[in-house]
Design a protein around this nucleic acid. Sequence first.
RNA 1: GUGACCAUAGCUCAAAUGGUUAGAGCACCAGACUGUGGCUCUGGGGGUUGAGGGUUCGACUCCCUCUGGUCACCCCA
Length: 430
Amino acid sequence: MAYTGIKSVYGTEDLLPEQWGHWRRLYSAARRLFQLHGYGEVRTPVLEQTQLFVKGTGENTDVVQKEMYTFSTGAASGQKSEESIALRPEGTPPAIRSYLEHDLHKKGAFRKFYYIGPMFRHERPQKARLRQFHQLGVEAIGAASPLLDAETILLALDIFRQVGLERSVLWLNSIGCAECRPPFRDMLRAALAHHVDQLCGDCRKRMDTNVLRVYDCKNEGCQAVIQQLPVMTDYLCAQCAEHYRRVKQALTRAGVQFREEPRLVRGLDYYTRTVYEIKHPDLGARSTICGGGRYDGLVELLGGPSLPCVGFAIGAEATLLAMESELGPPDETAPGLDVYVVRFDDEAAEACFEMVEQLRRAGVAADMDYEGRSSRAQMRTANRLGASFCFLIGARELESEQVLIKNMEDGKQWTAEWQAAAKEIACHLQ
RNA sequence: GUGACCAUAGCUCAAAUGGUUAGAGCACCAGACUGUGGCUCUGGGGGUUGAGGGUUCGACUCCCUCUGGUCACCCCA
C-alpha cells in the first residue's frame, strides 16, 4: 500500500520468479506435445498491421471493433506514410499471414504451426481475463481431413492431462460451411422473428449482427425461446455432416469423451464446420480453457489460395487457474542452488568471490552474500535458498589454503584443498 | 462500454452499536549459539488504516469525491 510510484498497467500483471511453477509445467508440457505431434514453432511479432485483424478476425467482431489496441505510426516515428498498427488480439491471423508471406504454400501446402505468446485486448479485466494474456495455439494449414480436427483436439486434451487436469470436458459442435450455414441462418432469423417480444435487447441486436450467438444468451426468457429453436447440426449439408461424423468417430475410437453441444457457437467470424471448447468446471463464469475449430475460408480471406485450416488456442491464465484448483498452489521453488559460500571474516570476501566463480565454472550453481551479513545470517540464507552444501571460509581456511565444506542435509563437515574443492563438489553433485 | 462490491503491517486477517496508545499469526531482522542453517525460546523494526474532503467532542468505523483493485455483463482464450 505504501507504494505510490508508477504501477503496472491496468489489466496486466507481473510473474515473479517464485510464481513460475505451474507456468513452467504448462509451457514445457505443451512444447513437448506440440513437437511430438509434428507442430513447429512460429514466432510472429506482437505488432501487426491493423488490417490483418480487420480482415482475418472479422470487421464486425467485438474483438476488432472495441477491444483492439491500435495506434498510428507516423509523425512520431518520422515515417513518410502512416499505417495503423495493432497489438495482436489473437494468434491465428498472424500465423496465417506468416505462412503466406513466406510462400510456404508453394513449398508443399501442408504445414503445422504452433505459437506461444502474449495477446492483447482492451476490455475490463476480470477473473482469467486480462488485457495482456497468453495463448498457446496450433494451426494446421492445408488439409480438410476430419482426422486433423481430431488430432488437434487430442493434442489439446493431452496437454491438459499432462499438466494434471483431470476434470476438463470437451464440448463439440459443427456450424457448417459457406454452403449450408447461410440458409440456416435465415431460417433461424425467421424463427426468432416470431418471438421478438420475448427476447432481450442484446438478442434483438444479435438477430442482425450474428444470429447464431443468440444461443449463448444467459437471459432466461431468451433461453426459453432458444430451446425451441432448430439447431445447425440438423441442417448440415451432406459434406459437412459426413465431416462431423468422421470427427466424432475418430474421437470415439481414441477413447475421448465429449459432449455434443449443438448450441455451441464461436465469436469469431472465420469458423466453419468443427468448433469446440474445452472447459473446466472450477472456473466459474469463464470456464473455457481452450477454444478451437476449423476455418476453411481464412487463408483465402487473407489473400492466399483456398486452403482449409484447423486449430485451437489455449488460454494460459485460465488454464493456470484450473491447475491451481486441481493441483493446489505451485511450489515456490528456489532457483536450485548447489553451494552457498559463507564468509566468516570480512577479509575472506575476495577469496569467497573467487571460489564462487570457480564453482560456477565447474558447472555448480553457487552464490554468496553481498550484504555483509553475519555468518549465522549467511547460513540461514543458504538454508532458505535450499543449498545442498555450504563452503565455509574464514581466516583459518585462508591460512591453510583449505575450504570447510558442510553438507546441509546431514550437517556433516570436512575440509578440502582450496584448488580441488570446486571439482570435488562438482563430482559429488552428479 | 454497463453494473455490483472491496481497500487496515511484506502476506492472511482482527479492532462490540463511532471512544483513549490500531492488534495477532506468518514473513523479515537480531540475540540465546561471540566460526555454523533447520527446531525452540526471547526481543525488534515495520501503519499518515489507499488519497482528499465532510459530519462529530471524538472516525479504521458514517457521508461525498478521487485513485487503485476484484467480480459479473457485453464479448472472448
